[in-house]
Simulated assay, not measured.
Amino acid sequence: MQTQKARKLLMIPGPIEFEPAVLAALAEPTPSHVAPDFIEVFGRALDNLRTVFQAPDGQPFVMAGSGTLAMEAAVANLLEPGDRVLQINTGYFSDRMAAICERSGALVTHVPAPAVGDAPGLAEVERALQQDRFKLMTITHVDTSTAVLTDVAALAKLARSAGALSVVDGVCSVAGEALPMADWDVDVALTASQKALGAPPGLALVMARPRALEAFRRRTRPVASYYADWSNWLPVMQAYQARKPAYFGTPAVNLVLALDVSLAQIIAEGMEARVARHARLSEAIKAALTALGLSQVPLRPAVAAHTLSAPYFPAGVDGAALLGKINAAGVILAGGLHPALRTRYFRIGHMGAVNAADVLATVGAIEQGLHGVGYRFDAGSGLAASQRVMQGQAGHPPFA
């Protein structure tokens, strides 16, 4: 049996560390999916998702599945063969979204970043929109492979002006980055439970606003994916919101119980405060990496995500050995994912329940790992840089 002391801190870009109350919900006796108490919980969770997505006019969908299912459900219900999609490409998961769109018969045009670690310029996107008529613009808010953040507000505005629906992959951003759907006029946003939403893996979540639902209702062919078809899920979601029983596929009931707890915690924190907290934790991590002489995949601060960081391994350092040393120091980090530089960098997740103590423990483990592989640096420089951010010496008030 593993003791609490033996447990390592999980600081990857999902799954993340979870609050004890969220984990406790998983241990509740499993209820019937049509039991009155569960109907109330599920209905409340759906209502609270509107608050978290900041989409009072949105229709939430919660399905058992991964973030990839959420991606498919978001676009498969809107696309028919021959439709055109403009993909704003910032990495591995942008490529995945394009592949999903192509499976629905869409014709995909990519607007690539000028380099790995950057985001396409708005002028380039505008030029692409002038070349054709697109039904969707798909945007990866934070690409988990590159830690690149896109300007969703500006991109959604461009999409609207060109008559395209905006679909935002928020798997690594929702509840960690600013994404006020209604204010930014985003048509669809999607995420998964195991990232900044702070619930265990297994739930795919989509929020569709009125224009997207209208486009879905106007389609002329059945949705190619039976499981992801909103025709099957919409009556179920609406029934639970009305506190009535319904069935299409059995929901992951204990995960919904956990989601309900997590959403209540997020709303109690407040969306503005939560986004600000993620920004500060990110700044503390990135300040430490800079102090330690580690460059990062995002090429400039404006495109650097606040939910994860992606530092390069130091020159001459064996990346696998470094991650092993960090693991031995008590913190689990993730290796690279983008195929162009997979072995050259690693990834640190800092979202959801992660707090200042977790960040300092992570920086300390990175310092210990760097020392263990023979990298030369000023001992404690990373921790000191993080502490300066935490103590309000970098232009912010100190953490409470």
Score class of each variant (00 low, 15 high):
88 I>Q: 06
129 L>V: 07
308 L>Q: 10
65 G>K: 06
40 E>T: 10
362 T>V: 04
67 G>H: 08
319 G>Y: 11
396 H>M: 10
152 V>S: 02
67 G>Q: 00
375 Y>K: 07
35 A>R: 07
239 A>K: 05
313 F>K: 09
132 D>K: 02
188 V>W: 12
37 D>F: 05
121 G>M: 03
180 P>W: 11
223 V>T: 06
290 T>P: 06
239 A>H: 05
375 Y>D: 05
49 L>R: 05
91 G>Y: 11
41 V>I: 13
337 L>I: 03
166 S>T: 13
388 R>C: 00
249 G>L: 12
55 A>M: 07
110 H>N: 14
209 R>T: 15
137 M>C: 15
63 M>H: 14
216 F>V: 08
191 T>R: 01
334 A>H: 11
78 L>P: 14
375 Y>M: 04
301 P>K: 08
21 A>L: 00
27 A>R: 12
245 P>K: 01
346 F>S: 07
200 P>N: 05
359 V>W: 10
207 M>I: 02
72 E>C: 05
132 D>I: 00
344 R>I: 04
368 Q>D: 07
159 A>R: 10
207 M>L: 03
354 V>G: 06
192 A>P: 12
152 V>H: 08
44 R>P: 08
256 V>Y: 13
141 H>L: 01
228 A>S: 14
19 E>W: 04
96 R>P: 08
172 C>P: 12
171 V>N: 03
244 K>P: 15
221 R>Y: 07
105 G>I: 09
272 E>P: 13
171 V>H: 08
121 G>H: 15
354 V>T: 15
143 D>G: 06
260 D>E: 10
7 R>E: 13
283 E>Y: 08
321 A>Q: 13
68 T>L: 00
352 G>A: 00
63 M>A: 13
276 A>Q: 14
46 L>V: 04
324 G>H: 10
130 Q>E: 15
213 L>F: 03
43 G>R: 09
229 D>L: 00
325 K>D: 05
193 S>R: 01
62 V>S: 06
268 A>W: 09
196 A>Q: 08
29 P>L: 00
153 A>D: 14
84 R>M: 03
170 G>C: 00
75 V>A: 01
326 I>K: 09
149 L>I: 10
113 A>I: 02
27 A>L: 04
162 A>K: 12
108 V>A: 05
103 R>E: 15
355 N>P: 04
83 D>E: 12
257 L>G: 04
392 G>F: 03
214 E>T: 15
382 G>R: 11
125 V>Y: 09
144 T>H: 05
49 L>T: 08
95 D>S: 09
